[in-house]
């Protein structure tokens, strides 16, 4: 790769990194999106600050009923973490769908969501999990909901000088089941459509339904109409299909070489159905 000239700093602490980012430096985590853009000279940052090596951003821990992931966790770490697999398996399952082994070894969860590719896998799961995203700047820290974080194609709630520092997801309660299902774009592996579904059953009824959708539109979103349609039902096949059919309703869908808007909307309903059936089967 022959990018334009840039400076590179690998600071020892997050504070040092944030200070440089506040001055306009561009954060580099796993580099799985930024480096290809620099290769094509579509991006030419003058100064890269490598936050991918910061131990401060690399942790997965449980605290007060929630799971906290440092933004620097690689997809491989998310995929294989015993803690996540036990207590929030949807996130591990979603990470396993990302790219290929090399990408999962390099790419980070923070980098992926900060980039906000409309076809990335994580946003579906984070929407369904009602994840919270911690944003830090040199002088600031705030927490936003996933639903408020993803704004549009490559656009997020991040302000200049801020980075994603942590992702907070809930510990799944007993009786919950979840699944992520996607159709992969055959060249890139990104989701043409990806749907994450979370269900909890209680007393023979679906007590809670959460559905996150990626790939379909300019931003990931929660399919709330479908969720509402499903809650308090018995989760019969017909009820699931009816709910799945609502996922793409009213959505302005993406269209590209690999899938037209019409096909994407159809796929969203198909994969929502599949994710819901799989999630239901996993509810205890």
């Amino acid at each position: 790769m022959i990018p334009q000239t840039f400076d590179y700093t690998a600071p020892a602490t997050l504070d040092q990194a944030l200070a440089l980012i506040a001055q306009g430096a561009k954060p580099l985590a796993g580099g799985m999106s930024l480096i290809p853009m620099m290769k094509l000279r579509l991006a030419a940052p003058e100064h890269l600050v490598d936050i991918g090596r910061l131990k401060e951003l690399n942790y997965i821990r449980e605290d007060a009923g929630a799971l906290h992931l440092g933004a620097g966790c690689t997809h491989y770490e998310v995929e294989t973490s015993p803690l996540l697999r036990g207590k929030c398996p949807l996130l591990s399952e979603t990470a396993a769908h990302i790219g290929d082994v090399q990408v999962r070894n390099m790419g980070t969860i923070g980098g992926s969501i900060a980039h906000a590719d409309p076809s990335a896998d994580y946003p579906a799961a984070l929407q369904a999990l009602e994840a919270k995203i911690v944003l830090r700047g040199a002088q600031s820290q705030r927490t936003v909901a996933a639903s408020a974080f993803f704004l549009d194609t490559f656009a997020t709630a991040l302000e200049p000088g801020e980075i994603v520092s942590e992702i907070i997801v809930p510990v799944e309660e007993a009786g919950a089941g979840a699944s992520y299902q996607k159709m992969a774009q055959p060249a890139s592996g990104f989701a043409i459509v990806g749907v994450a579904a979370r269900l909890r059953r209680s007393g023979g009824k679906i007590a809670m339904a959460r559905i996150g959708v990626t790939g379909l539109a300019g931003r990931s979103f929660r399919a709330t109409a479908a969720e509402k349609a499903l809650e308090n039902t018995a989760g019969s096949a017909a009820e699931i299909q009816a709910a799945a059919a609502l996922v793409a309703q009213g959505v302005e869908a993406n269209s590209d070489l690999h899938a037209s808007a019409e096909y994407r909307k159809h796929l969203a309903a198909v994969y929502a159905g599949r994710a819901l059936f799989a999630a239901l089967a996993r509810t205890a």
């Binding site: 290809p36 094509l40 774009q185 055959p186 060249a187 890139s188 070489l257 690999h258």
Partner: peptide
């Protein structure tokens, strides 16, 4: 099943990278 070199009407190769050429 997968591969196709696609040019648009202006003659731009839109499968110009391994991200789009399968």
């Amino acid at each position: 099943l997968y591969e196709q070199a696609v040019y648009d009407e202006a003659g731009q190769l839109i499968t110009g990278e391994l991200m789009d050429y399968a």
